[in-house]
Design a protein around this nucleic acid. Structure first.
Length: 465
DNA sequence: ATGTTC
């Protein structure tokens, strides 16, 4: 690999049609663990219609494309690829703020965590939180979070605090398979497993007082963070379209450097159908997080009837969207990358025009999370993208082999973190030691200038699959 | 990530 350091935390790797750009530190560049992930972002530069291939400081190995990567393609000559988005379509993060202070929450924290755990089914195959029929699911595909609000789960004002209003188009349920529909029916309002979680956090530090004030953030404030996606519904859609592309576009895909980069020309009917089906899954995920936050609100008000809880923002970090840069339409794949719109961007609702878009970057179970704000510079150097999390350091298998459950529980106990989980295995696979240091990731993001820190939060309690 | 390896 031909890697050149352009400036501090910005590297250029020689690519095929374009060069790849990586925002990271020298340690990551030199670490053999990340060699494959860096090769993956280089592979992306070989795809048709590529405009930019960018990796974030939380880069790690993924299916075809690296996680923590952005792939930008021309809408006419370029492609759309399920691997550039991820199996968990519109995996994302939602942050709820409260009028509650940490000291008031501490004595009843266990009860609150238990209440939330009962309200939101977690774990692999979790189901049965709400009953919907096929017609509802069709509406969810089209209307996303708006469907949930129309059903009484939350309020209309929530919608402007969700990326794209929680509703993407085109999204035609006819492009979604029967099998995906079957899976989607009983999974709405469930958390899932793996790195998905609900976390009760407290604001530990404020970096940007002016923005924090506008966002309604204060030191010691209790917040609730939700990290989850489109469950088996999105997973099935990704699986279906990988198969469809394999069966119907074999000559188009014959010279791929990696089979997992399978794709369709964006302008091809299959590319268009996948885009539409992907939007259905994205809308399902927006509805899912809307439902979950409503359930959490009920649990919260049971414990604290006189306190308020409201939505700060909801971001997607596994998605592809049509965006325009320099009057050219592009299909921007963000896989483990968060949109980062700076102040004044016309896509923002009025309330965020002067601040820029809230950006949510959670860490791992025992570590900090950040609220950041989008930066104009991101629109210039990263196609309005920034990092999405701490980024995995160790694979699941390696985690199970090297880490000890009792030791992990002791660590969390020492940090005063209450945990409720469906199983031990997920906890070990998601232990803090498995992730990079989120503080470092966010530091690079800010120094490069693709988002700015507003507040740092630390965990008080966590619910996991 | 996932009715757990596509």
């Amino acid at each position: 690999m031909n890697i050149k350091r352009l400036e501090r935390f910005i590297y250029r790797i020689k690519g095929v049609n374009v060069d790849a750009v990586v925002f990271t530190d020298q340690e990551t560049i030199d670490n053999p663990e990340f060699k494959e992930a860096l090769q993956q972002i280089v592979n992306v530069t070989q795809l048709p219609g590529i405009i930019a291939a960018i990796a974030m400081p939380d880069i790690h190995w993924g299916y075809g494309f690296p996680i923590g990567g952005v792939g930008v393609f021309d809408t006419e000559t370029g492609i759309i690829s399920p691997g550039g988005i991820g199996f968990d379509i519109n995996c994302g993060v939602r942050l709820m703020l409260t009028s509650l202070h940490e000291e008031e929450a501490r004595p009843v924290l266990r009860k609150l965590i238990e209440e939330i755990y009962r309200s939101v089914p977690a774990g692999v195959g979790a189901s049965g939180a709400v009953k919907i029929n096929k017609k509802d699911l069709r509406s969810i595909c089209i209307y996303g979070a708006q469907w949930a609000v129309d059903q009484g789960y939350g309020s209309k004002s929530d919608l402007e605090n969700i990326e794209d209003g929680g509703k993407l188009s085109p999204a035609d349920p006819e492009d979604v398979s029967k099998k995906a529909f079957e899976r989607g029916l009983d999974e709405l309002s469930t958390l899932g497993a793996g790195n998905h979680f609900i976390e009760i956090q407290k604001v530990e530090r404020i970096f940007d007082k002016d923005t924090a004030d506008i966002f309604g953030i204060f030191e010691g404030q209790v917040a609730v963070c939700i990290h989850c996606g489109s469950r088996g519904f999105g997973h099935q859609i990704a699986t279906d379209y990988i198969q469809i592309m394999r069966d119907n576009l074999s000559s188009h895909n014959k010279n791929l450097p990696d089979k997992q980069l399978i794709n369709a020309p964006f302008s091809h009917p299959i590319g268009q159908k996948y885009f539409s089906a992907m939007n259905c899954a994205a809308n399902y995920a927006f509805a899912n997080r809307q439902m979950i936050s409503y359930m959490i609100q009920l649990a919260f008000h049971k414990t604290f009837p006189s306190k308020n809880m409201w939505l700060l923002y909801d971001v997607a970090h596994n998605i592809a969207k049509i965006e325009e840069y320099e009057k050219r339409k592009m299909i921007v794949h963000r896989k483990g990358a968060t949109r980062s719109l700076g102040a004044g961007n016309h896509l923002l609702p009025q309330k965020f025009i002067e601040t820029g878009q809230p950006v949510l970057i959670p860490g791992s179970m025992g570590s900090a999370s950040y609220i950041l704000v989008g930066a104009k510079k991101a629109e210039q150097i990263s196609y309005a993208s920034t990092a999405h999390g701490a980024g995995r350091l160790l694979g699941r298998r390696a985690a199970l082999k090297t880490l000890n459950y009792e030791k992990l529980m002791n660590e969390l106990k020492q940090k005063n973190i209450e945990v409720m989980s469906k199983g031990k295995r997920t906890l070990i696979e998601e232990a803090p030691a498995v992730y990079k240091d989120v503080d470092k990731v966010v530091d690079i993001v800010e120094k490069v200038g693709i988002a700015r820190r507003v507040a740092r939060l630390i965990p008080m309690g966590v619910v996991k699959g």
